[in-house]
Design a protein around this nucleic acid. Structure first.
Lengths: 162, 162
DNA sequence: TTTTTTGTTCAGTTTTAACTGTATAAAAAA
DNA sequence: TTTTTTATACAGTTAAAACTGAACAAAAAA
């Protein structure tokens, strides 16, 4: 019970900052965990986190893995300490944007092949069936969707080039 | 049972495109609804949508409202038709980006005031309490978070200026 | 006006995602 | 090696959200 006031303030920041992280597509717990590590500003163990956030160690393990996969936190080694230590990346803007863009690019990549495959099927139909006329609108839409994906990719490429 | 093949293709596009929309923070149903309207390419009633997606009319009502609030669909008037008609906006890139940016800006705006308020509290503490030294790190972090918000806002402003 | 049709509200249900605790695996110390 | 400590997998549970249907409200037709 040494500094209730400053702890209160830290908690307030934690709550608000958590909302920010959630906007990048992370779950509430993942977001709170990252916010906690970011504010702590020093490597923490799973037990530290579990106690601080009042959640199970298992939840910490899975959440921290997600964050690590997205490169928002990194594991840290400290001599004499057996437990895994994790700390948050400090370059917020870069880390979060890259994480978000990677999610997009990965999803877009999978979808691109699906769309191209569908396009191919349409072409085959057009050759064989005469009554495709009504389906032209669908084809138009598909091409617009593909174009949209291209625009998104271009946008992200530009943003990366800082 | 006229064109099973082309319907199959339309459905495939629907499924894939739905995933795209989900990436912008919409629920599965909202996403599927928008994708459906987008591909249909003509105004549809709530009953049309409910039947096509196999969901309740209530679900359509709430979902379409969200989409309308985000300006992804608009209501359309047609003489002689009593039911409300809705159609999707066709400028995908613009519509989705604006929607996403607005969400961010709105959230950022609320958070900004929270953060500035917290900053004020810290300043007051610094004046009165001597043992704030340890809290400096937290203050540093807070300033970085505020800076991050600023960067995001700048980014979105730039993107809007096309 | 009354009757009919359409849209929305809300309580309750179903479905999905989040979370926990036990058991196991992996790794370090003894 | 065995013992101890830490991290993960997984089945089961709890919490959150998505969704439905009945009742109501709003609007148009009769």
């Amino acid at each position: 019970m040494n500094k209730p006031q400053s702890e209160h303030i830290t908690n307030k920041i934690l709550v608000e900052f958590t909302k920010t992280i959630e906007m990048f597509g992370f779950t509430p717990l993942e977001s709170r965990l990252f916010a906690y590590l970011y504010l702590a500003d020093k490597p923490m163990t799973l037990d530290d986190m579990a106690e601080a956030l009042g959640k199970s160690k298992t939840a910490m393990s899975t959440s921290i893995r997600t964050l690590a996969d997205q490169n928002l936190v990194t594991r840290v080694w400290k001599k004499g300490v057996r437990k895994s230590l994790y700390k948050a990346h400090t370059q917020l803007f870069k880390a979060l944007m890259v994480s978000y863009m990677n999610k997009w690019v990965e999803a877009a990549h999978q979808q691109r092949s699906s769309f191209l495959e569908i396009e191919q099927q349409i072409k085959e139909m057009k050759a064989s069936e005469a009554e495709w006329i009504q389906g032209r609108q669908v084809e138009e839409r598909l091409l617009e969707i593909i174009e949209f994906h291209q625009e998104m990719e271009d946008l992200f490429r530009d943003m990366k080039g800082d």
